[in-house]
Design a binder for these strands. Sequence first.
DNA 1: AAGCCGCCCTGTAGGC
DNA 2: TGCCTACAGGGCGGCT
Length: 488
Amino acid sequence: MPELPEVETVRRGLTRLVEGATIDHVDVLYEKMVDPEPESFKEQLKGKTIEAIDRRGKYLLFRFNDDLTMVSHLRMEGKYDVQPDDAPITKHTHVIFHLTDGRALRYTDTRKFGRMNLLKTGTESQLIAGLKKMGPEPTAEALTVDYMTKIFAKSKKAIKPFLLDQNNIAGLGNIYVDETLWMSRINPLQHANTIPAFRIRQLRDNIIKEISHAISGHGTTVHSFSTAYGEAGQFQNQLNVYGRKGEPCVRCGTPIEKTKVAQRGTHFCPACQALQEIPSETMVLGLTGGIASGKSMVSAFFKTHGVPIIDADQVAREVVVPGSTGLTQIQQTFGWQIIQPDGTLDRKALGSLVFGQPEALAKLNAIMLPLIQAAVTAQMATYRKQNVPLVVYDAPTLFESKGASLVDEIMVVSLPEDIQLARLMARDQTTEADAMKRIKSQLPLDEKIKRADIVIDNSGTVEKTKAQVVKWLDEAGFSTLLNTAKQA
DNA sequence: AAGCCGCCCTGTAGGC
DNA sequence: TGCCTACAGGGCGGCT
């Protein structure tokens, strides 16, 4: 089912194959496919040369000499291919453009949904209903934050059919809508006018990014799409939710669900993309990274800009202070030996009990993780109530401790392993073997990067790292925070 | 006016 | 094995 990236892939392929070619004559085998009626359609195209092939949204625009344009929509299954003129025709071939060079450009379409309209060049944007009202192309230049904000405020529609509507944004279809909503953590049923400003911005960035990546990957092959060369696209290997019903969410591990929204099969993660009854304008940024990666420095940098920090390590200590239910549960599970004479938790003793003991560690996690999650969620709720624009959740084990679905965006501080090793050895005065063991005990960096929205490269100077954070703050719409810090 | 639904088509997967 | 139904989904026309 071609969406914009597939149509663009077809356009590029066809341009290489038939630009400059001249039509000898045309056969129309399925009359309803063309407009005007076949006799006039064939007559007008006789002897015309293909000067260029353009695209607008999911429409192809064949430009001929003498101000003639053919608007072609592939709909669900339409395909073009170029064959020697005498090659046998297949069952679902409906239109054949015989070229003067002995080849033929053929249009095949099993379900006959595609349409071709022939008209005077320049009139197509008025005469073709779909082109007349079509929204901007999903590029950084055409799809502005201002425009998005304006159209979202005006519509009560569920976001899924809203994005499928070509009058709002050109080129998105069922697959890329599911994908970009997952990337942006928006429930497909969320009403457009209830989506907070920071999420609109995320969604815009993700749409632009996803469409351009898909074009680079020559489109997605699901069911039947193939390029003009008859090759399959590559992008289906990069889909995160579409067609992945029941498989774990790449980000948080919750099984992907499939439902029906606006008559369309709809895939989403029920944890990451929860429906927001009372949408919050507060954005929570999850900050993580490997040991000695420089995450703490980035966290401190946010703090100097007045961004509140929720510190996962600190919360983990708070939920086991003397008298807490957390400490009681741990004592009941592991015995009095983990309680010090002053009533506090003996971390060293507990550590040695669970180190290298998967079962004991699982028991400890079963006690700790829900307590930490509850405490963190409560802190987030407080900030939301105060309408704080940005909060950072600083969590070294964000993914391992199931924190990924609690946050709105994930930033990973990244460092090549050799530099990380050197920094860790210098910081903690440990041996190489010991430092390596600790690095290897964590989720691998490339796995974290795969699940991240933003990666901060900390292999350079501190200033270079900070500059990347400043750039993100600016692009994410928090430039006022930067100004505040400068004045302070 | 905005939003919802059925229709256009055919092949295929899954249930019984 | 075969028959039946549901499903795939882009865009448009018609209805509320």
